[in-house]
Amino acid sequence: MSRSRDDIPQAERSRQNSGRGQTELPALGIAFLFLTVALLITVAAADTAFTAADRDAIERQAAVSLSDELVDEQSSVAARQNVLNESALDQLSGTKLVEEHGLDDDHAATVQLDGETVAEHGEVTDGTTIERIVSQESYELERLEPAFADSLSVSLPRRTDAVTLTLSPPPGTTVRSVRANNETVLKSEDGLDGSFELSLSTLSTTTLWFEAAGSMPRGSVEIEYLATETQKSTLTVTVDE
């Protein structure tokens, strides 16, 4: 048989009440503790997300625009769009970056080609790096002295738009004309002798035909042309504000 509320003696009830009243404060404290921890975690997560999204947009824009300028066909170091001229690149300097390629004088920058520093302006500590793949063009003067066997013709091993042709036929031999593919480029009834600049088409491989009376030993024709060598490299531009 259960006791009714009134049956509990006054003293006992008082003891029960006093115990119950104070359990609520520690509970509140623990709840606050949890809330605080949750809040800290949230702030930390937000901070991480924020840091991840934080990047230096202006610095990046400066790096992009500098690298754009360098590979632009108007640029002093580019032969064509995205093709860098190796010898012009050697002339590049930090001052030129500012004067010709629109780098802000307050910004530090380095330009590297395949990891090798080409130009430097100021001191870069960290910064934004833009990498782009470019072709790198170098020119080399090639010389060809054909020895004619079956026919008086020579095919140029590389396509080129200009050659220097030096004719020095031995005494008694007269070179009347020179044809490039099917086009007569040099002609003289009295005989050709000396250096001639020929413009050629790069659209097809050129074969030079000589029309000569007499023997043409090795050395009577010398052909010089600029051979273009192209290789892929990585252009790295780092700008530090």
Partner: peptide, 12 residues
């Protein structure tokens, strides 16, 4: 950050 990005976008 927004101002930087706005300016960088405008400039490019």
């Amino acid at each position: 950050e927004l101002s930087e990005r706005t300016l960088a976008t405008a400039a490019s």
